[in-house]
Design a protein around this nucleic acid. Structure first.
Length: 551
DNA sequence: TCTGCCTCAACTGAGAGCAC
DNA sequence: GTGCTCTCAGTTGAGGCAGA
């Protein structure tokens, strides 16, 4: 039954020594949506609210996992503080419950989407790094957004963030006369100087528009919410958007008014595709072809026949005009060659493309690709195999050169060794000593090693249980000051691989071995007698040799 | 005492981006 | 087109722990 984590429960759990802590309230209660509570599977953690200074667990692996610089985080307590946005609080004044300690500390997990979403649609595909301590402070200070250190961020948003941080620095620096308290100056100017606010707002909006964020925001209410929220917050504009109910209206007004207010500016900012379109239309005008007014926005395959025909007709007219310039008076002839060879190529490539797509194994795909890569460029193949990456293309090309065109890819298994040969040899030398192991007079073990070779070795008997043998070895290493050792578990695994028979009783082992040896000697003398008695000397020697091998 | 299972860290292949 | 670098995700060996 889950236990309610309440102050009463806390108090009941406490002893006299903890009396001092009973007055504590978790300082992180407003840092996450989670309520205070316990973490049952963290058995080593005290089940009570602790002073933050007591949080001293190692967070190295957590920092490593989420690419957080160890220079900015020197302890678990500082990690907790920064994640909670308590950048300037003193450790001594803070307390924390186990649940918030876990949620903000080693148990924290970032979203797989871009945490900022300024320049992307919270894309997962292009996460390029994580939020640093400085960036987290900046976002909290100027955007009133708390993003946990280590949160994923895409390359475009990171670039934008770095730019905004640089802009902020540049705005503060050029005024050395007021450098007594530059931060305060910025804060004051943002909140009190109306003219500055408007100028800065305009500049920020221009930046956003330039990247098409306003346009993007129009597309989704959520995007608009975020952009407007950030924008309004950033400049501390006092709007009437105080309730969530009025948020959508407010965003619409904000975004759309910004959009219209700077429409002139927006018009002057032409995207590369727009520029290309204008250049094309200019060209079309000179060759008496109507300009391109619309572009295909759906997949060509999914478009209606009429649409397809329109675009094909238009493309052919444009191509005809281009060829008129490239090969004057021979357009028709050239078109024939061009389209025919393309048709042939199309068919071949389509077939290969189908074969490629139907293969799930990258090895087979590489084999198929190697047939094409020497005759076609990456871009040509990309048209027929949309998911073809540059890496796959160049790998296939390398395969064609090194292994051969269309040759199968050889799969070779790779093994890793972390225990060194020396460490294993030392251990084997120790356990194969007569004090630890005894060769059995009878029987053989068969080992099949990874290369396929089968080895036959005499059966061995371990004189004590495996754990004791490992303990003995570790003690031996300690005495001989050999620090190059592995863990007990690894030595246990080595013994498992050797599969020795464990001797159940020490008593009578020598007699057992001696009896076995005597039996072989007796058999040998019988064989020699039979050899003299008629079986022949050759037969006797052969059997005798086999017996000795068996022994 | 032994072993199955979990976690961590190192390693590796795949893929993208960039400069030349 | 090529080569280099970097990041990400999956794999694998090793360590540790709990329970049979």
């Amino acid at each position: 039954m889950p236990v309610q984590f309440t102050p009463q429960f806390l108090h009941a759990e406490m002893n006299d020594e903890d009396e001092r802590e009973s007055q504590f309230v978790c300082s992180f209660v407003n840092s996450t949506v989670q309520q205070c509570g316990l973490i049952e599977y963290k058995k080593t953690w005290p089940s009570r609210i602790l002073p933050l200074t007591c949080c001293k667990d190692s967070v190295d692996s957590h920092l490593y996992k989420y690419s957080i610089s160890r220079r900015s985080i020197d302890s678990e307590s500082s990690l907790l503080k920064i994640r909670a946005g308590l950048f300037e609080e003193d450790d001594d004044t803070l307390t924390i419950c186990p649940k918030h300690r876990f949620a903000l500390g080693v148990g924290w997990r970032p979203s797989t989407l871009c945490s900022i979403g300024w320049k992307c649609t919270n894309s997962k595909s292009n996460l390029k790094g994580t939020i640093t301590k400085e960036q987290s402070i900046f976002l909290k200070k100027y955007h009133h957004v708390l993003l946990g250190i280590g949160s994923g961020v895409c390359s475009r948003c990171r670039k934008e963030l770095v730019q905004r941080m640089a802009d902020k620095e540049n705005r503060v620096e050029p005024n050395p006369s007021s450098s007594m308290n530059s931060n305060c100056n910025v804060e004051a100017s943002e909140s009190t100087n109306a003219e500055f606010i408007m100028e800065e707002t305009k500049e920020e909006i221009s930046q956003i528009d330039g990247y098409g964020e306003v346009t993007q925001c129009k597309q989704t209410v959520q995007g608009a919410k975020k952009a407007a929220f950030l924008q309004i917050d950033e400049e501390n504009l006092q709007t009437n958007c105080l309730s969530m109910d009025s948020m959508d209206d407010c965003i619409s007004e904000s975004v759309y008014s910004q959009s219209s207010q700077y429409s002139e500016w927006q018009d002057s900012q032409e995207s590369p595709s727009r520029k290309r379109k204008m250049s094309l239309n200019s060209f079309l005008e000179t060759v008496d072809i109507s300009p391109v007014k619309k572009t295909l926005t759906v997949d060509f395959d999914l478009a209606s026949e009429r649409t397809k025909n329109d675009y094909v007709r238009k493309a052919k007219r444009i191509m005809h005009s281009v060829l008129g310039i490239l090969v004057p008076q021979q357009e028709s002839l050239f078109e024939e060659v061009l389209y025919e060879s393309n048709a042939y190529k199309d068919q071949t490539l389509e077939s290969f493309s189908k074969a490629y797509s139907s293969m799930s194994s990258w090895g087979t795909q590489r084999q198929i690709l190697s047939l094409l890569v020497q005759d076609y460029s990456y871009n040509q193949l990309k048209d027929y195999i949309p998911d073809l990456s540059r890496y796959k293309f160049s790998s296939a090309r390398k395969h064609a050169e090194v292994v051969g065109v269309g040759k199968p890819v050889l799969q070779k298994k790779q093994f890793r060794e972390k225990a060194t040969i020396q460490q294993i040899e030392n251990f084997l030398e120790f356990i194969l000593s007569p004090a630890i192991m005894t060769d059995s007079p009878f029987g053989e073990c068969t080992y099949k090693i990874s290369s396929g070779i089968t080895l036959k070795v005499p059966k061995i008997i371990l004189n004590s249980v495996r754990t004791r043998t490992v303990t003995l070895y570790l003690k031996y290493c300690e005495e001989t000051q050999n620090a190059d050792i592995l863990s007990e578990r690894t030595y246990m695994r080595l013994l498992e691989a050797i599969e020795p028979n464990v001797r159940k009783s020490m008593k009578g082992l020598d007699n057992f071995a001696a009896d076995g040896s005597q039996a072989f000697d007796n058999l040998k003398s019988v064989v020699m007698t039979l050899g003299k008695g008629g079986k022949g000397q050759e037969w006797a020697e052969k059997i005798s040799k086999q017996l000795m091998e068996g022994k």
